[in-house]
Design a protein around this nucleic acid. Structure first.
Lengths: 147, 147
DNA sequence: GGTGCTGGTCTAGAATAGAGACCACAACGG
DNA sequence: CCGTTGTGGTCTCTATTCTAGACCAGCACC
């Protein structure tokens, strides 16, 4: 299994990341060798993560996804889905009904990312207050400095 | 502590994400209520994650960060640093030397994200091969379909 | 025969990222 | 005395990317 780290073991996390960074740096951040920039770019892709999470509840059709994530444009929805499909995270199945319907579902690979993703979401929920507070502080002192 | 999940417990991850998604959906993805879109957007921001990881090794100055991440432009470096500072993930300290030097370091909040981030990096490293393979398959069948 | 539903594509306009010039200031070199 | 170097940025201009929305084919329903 990939994740050997226990919750709370911050030193391990730090060591792992520092070491990986050295390796990437040594290879000049070659994209084929740097999973962060190759993989995590998509994680923050604004839509892809949201769709993976939406699909945790089960397979969904194009229109259902569109309704589930209200403010996504069709174009970006298609693009995000294609991207996830290409990366093997979701599979696309067309049913020959009239009009044809298309169903998207998580693959095992797509399901396997849910776990680290859930950790990150938990972190985000736990620390969101801190972040908003930090922002408020920053904006306040920023405004004070500008005045 | 935020992360209650153990490695390998995929069902828990799934349940948590599905539940969170319901909540966000119910609130129409209000940004102040949806940590994923508020926090994880930055995680995938191409540069911010990389800088957090770079700073795991210790405090760094502007120029050092620039050298550590070779293909970032000054503009984006400044922007990313400001963003991280505003969110309370890093702190900025100016030394009154001539010319003044500026040192960036992780705050406790910034350090706390390293742990879930390391999990994601571990996942990425472990599955990067699978993803590349999936891409190759997709591109091959795509090309075949186009021909 | 109009209207709606399916899953998209295409095209313009807006927002954003990137490359690089520029800046002030002091030390250092010649 | 005057140009060069190094500091941490900002500014501008261009290139890419996102978004909104019109459009499409095909069939069912009325």
């Amino acid at each position: 299994m990939s994740t050997r780290l226990r919750a709370g073991n911050h030193l391990d996390a730090c060591a792992v990341l520092a070491e990986r960074f050295q390796v990437w740096q040594a290879s000049s951040f070659d994209l084929t060798l740097c999973p962060v920039r190759d993989v995590l770019d998509r994680v923050g892709d604004k839509w892809t993560t949201l769709m993976l999470i939406a699909l945790t509840a089960g397979p969904m059709r194009f229109g259902a996804l569109r309704r589930a994530v209200p403010d996504i444009s069709k174009r970006m929805l298609t693009q995000s889905l294609r991207c996830l499909e290409r990366d093997g995270m979701i599979s696309r199945q067309v049913f020959p009904t009239k009009p044809p319907s298309v169903e998207y579902r998580l693959t095992p690979l797509g399901q396997s990312i849910l776990e680290p993703l859930a950790q990150l979401v938990s972190w985000a929920e736990a620390r969101h207050g801190d972040i908003k507070a930090a922002r408020a502080r920053f904006d306040a002192s920023d405004k004070a400095a500008a005045a």
